[in-house]
Design a protein around this nucleic acid. Structure first.
Lengths: 146, 146
DNA sequence: ATTTTCCTTTACGTAAACGTCAACCTTGAT
DNA sequence: ATCAAGGTTGACGTTTACGTAAAGGAAAAT
């Protein structure tokens, strides 16, 4: 194995820009135990692993995970290699619950998508009607003016 | 048309039970303009329309909509029948943004589902290994005892 | 009659996830 | 040398979505 490839690093503002969050957010996530950047003096140096975690945290947020939940999943996943039976069973339990959540969300989304489509059609229809009415008004005005 | 069919009504606690929320939540939603129950004296009487709105609000929440966003969608949808062109265009804009959000969420979910499956497999593997190890330990103990 | 039961309003409390200063290094450019 | 750009640690403020407790009305059961 080659453990000697130099991995890229990132500054806090680079990550902030890439993921469109503030540096405050990134520091807050560290404070909550989601990130663990190295230090060079005082300055934080982020590894690809940190970057992935940030990415996952943000995706988790979009899906309604709290920061605490994301942290729990990270921690469990990390300890999976040396976890004892009880921990592993607990993790499997959590995973199956999350999967159930995701199935629920999937169905929520699909239904909402349909409804948004319906609303859009209805809205388009209304728009056409408004425009037809306004055209009539305009032509009436024309006749007045002409 | 028959407008005279008697629609069912619901008490606040009936709705609370059905949707597994507190009455506090339901009153709060009303305060935020999401529900508009009739009154019988002081007591709130909920119509099927209120019930649907509650349902939609809760589904919205599961998908990361704020109460204000849900309210905006409700209000716009209600005013769609008599909306002017500007409003309709605005609504169409919102709708297309929401649809983009939903597409993003859909892809987020699908990726997360894959990852959860991978994590689950990995976890199952680890579990098997732990159990094999523990079996060996146990049989060693057996030999000591026997 | 009185005690539950269900409902009401008012109002203060709270947790999560940051925003927003303030006050301070450090380091490369001018 | 100084100054702007980016980094740091507090620490208090803010918004959202309710929780929780107080104080009480009305009606139904015992």
């Amino acid at each position: 194995m080659n453990n000697k490839v130099k991995l890229p690093t990132y500054s806090i503002s680079e990550l902030a820009k890439e993921f469109e969050v503030t540096t405050r957010t990134i520091r807050f996530y560290e404070q909550q135990g989601l990130l663990n950047p190295a230090r060079q003096g005082q300055t934080r140096i982020y590894s690809p692993k940190d970057r992935v975690r940030l990415m996952l945290t943000l995706r988790g947020k979009r899906l309604g995970f709290s920061l605490a939940e994301s942290k729990e999943l990270f921690d469990m996943y990390d300890s999976t290699t040396q976890g004892n039976e009880k921990q592993l069973l607990y993790m499997l339990d959590i995973l199956s619950k999350k999967q159930a959540d995701m199935r629920q969300q999937l169905s929520d989304i699909q239904r909402l998508q349909e409804e948004l489509n319906i609303a859009e059609s209805r809205c388009q229809d209304a728009l056409v009607k408004v425009r037809q009415r306004d055209e009539k008004k305009a032509s009436t005005q024309q006749r007045k003016v002409g």
